[in-house]
Design a protein around this nucleic acid. Sequence first.
RNA 1: GGCAACGUAGCUCAGUGGCAGAGCGGGCGCUUCAUAAGCGCUAGGUCACAGGUUCGAACCCUGUCGUUGCCA
Length: 555
Amino acid sequence: MSERILVAVAWPYANGSIHLGQVAGAYLPADIFARYHRLKGNDVLMVSGSDAHGTPVTLSAEKQGVSPEQVFGRYQAEFLDNWERLGIGFDLFTTTHTDNHTQVAQDMFLTLYKKGHIYKDTMSQPYCETDRRFLADRYVEGDCPHCGFESARGDQCDNCGRTLDPQDLINMVCKLCGNAPIIQETEHFFLRLSAFEDQLLEWVRKQDHWRSNVKNFSIGYLEGGLHDRAITRDIEWGVPVPLEGYESKRIYVWFEAVIGYLSASKEFGQLNDNEDRWSDFWQSDSRSYYFMGKDNIPFHTVIWPAMLLGYGGLNLPYDVPANEFLNLEGLQFSTSRNWAIWLPDYLDKYEPDPLRYVLSANMPETSDSDFTWKEYVRSNNDELVATYGNLVHRILTMVSRNFDGKVPEAGTLDSVDNDLLDHARRSFDETEAGIEACHFRAALQSAMGLAREANRYLERQAPWQTVRTDRQRAASTLWVGLAVVNCLKTILSPYLPFSSEKLHAMLGFDGSIEEHGWVWDRDELSPGQPLGTPEPLFTKLDESLVEEEAEKMAG
RNA sequence: GGCAACGUAGCUCAGUGGCAGAGCGGGCGCUUCAUAAGCGCUAGGUCACAGGUUCGAACCCUGUCGUUGCCA
């Protein structure tokens, strides 16, 4: 029975490249999950897009002396290229700067407003008399009232990490002109989050399939009490407030960006000449999974659900498998300190599958994890190449040399043969259950365990010897070996789509793995089926790479 | 400061009441079909620290220290 699965992935700010932390935290797990469900034959919609609005984009634009459109346009193009090269298969990766998104976001705003979930009030904001504009949190800086750090931002101090209100800053200055802003009252719209507290708490408490840290954190967040939050700002870049008299105000980015999941779903339908397509994933018996880093949890377990409840008639998140953070060589990824591995840089030099493998094997599912170049090389050489790639290669070359490159016909199977085939069945089921539950690391371990077991099997059956003494026995062994490789091809394909596709062809199949589906049958390879020319699936990397990359990062 | 997590082998990490685990790395040996890949054996741990509950604690409770995220 086909299921409907919405794979919703956090929207990256379009003011800088994607780094490996974001890949490990959100994009890769989402893609593995989506690929698996597509193989299962389920109806999958995977969406995300560039967060084109928000102050990081305008700040970058002003720094570079270009328009915000140019900034987000450049990164939107880069993101699309990166997804293609890394094999992140979005059904639609759009942006928040589309007419469609504006319309959907304004509809959400108006509906909530009419239903009384949004109300007007006034608040105090820094106003720069020189630039004649209100200043967003990140447009002011000053001394941190807690630690005295001299260039704390309006929303947070980068030194002591505390969150701030602009009014807290000592010696506050406008980042644009350097003059001191004044504090001025301004009218804004507020989301009545407090009204949803009980309903959300009841809902979150029922989510027993959520990761415990996600659930506990959300419950704690709700029990601490929800405060109504301002959802508009006095800025020019963003979605206009759709009410007369408020033309100078924009919907604030944290409220508007999450609506992207819905607007992207609608845009997907329009692009495919099926206007109502979005409702399959939002109003019917569909499950939605939201992938993101841990810093984004409350937006997806509390605020977005509150908006959906207020709007009415739309599905709440089914699961929010948020990941912890990936560190780099023991330190946090930091854009400002340029401590990062940027995805476009990686893709210019290396293959996609090894990265997908290393990040999956080390995915920060339950706690922060660490990426090091040393581990990257080790993992590629000792696991991908030595365990899996070599297994495939030794079996294929033996068949190629001794059985005319055709699937040999098995004779009677012995208990060792059957044990391995049983193991393959178990690994297939375990990998399936693991991915289904968003336990990507464990599922990958199960698959790799099968590759190790197959190497042990070969050692025991030694077909390179029996081929000279008992040709039928060697044929049976290699037939079993091929059947297991065929299994590995499928269960590893969500993780290693490029090499699995290559292997699929080498095993003599036509078409793609996606057409083939998430199935494994030991008898799938028919005797006599001609195999392709065996080629290594992965390449060993030289240790010198570790030092080269270390030097690059130090510089 | 409040809340939620995390701290386990050289490294990266599993393990939530019942004999401390895996992968990789180290050491020794075997093998040679395969990308010098593979297989077996082996060494290696005060489960952050200190208390408590229990017949029994890495696991439950309290406190301390360290790390992370969110919030004020």
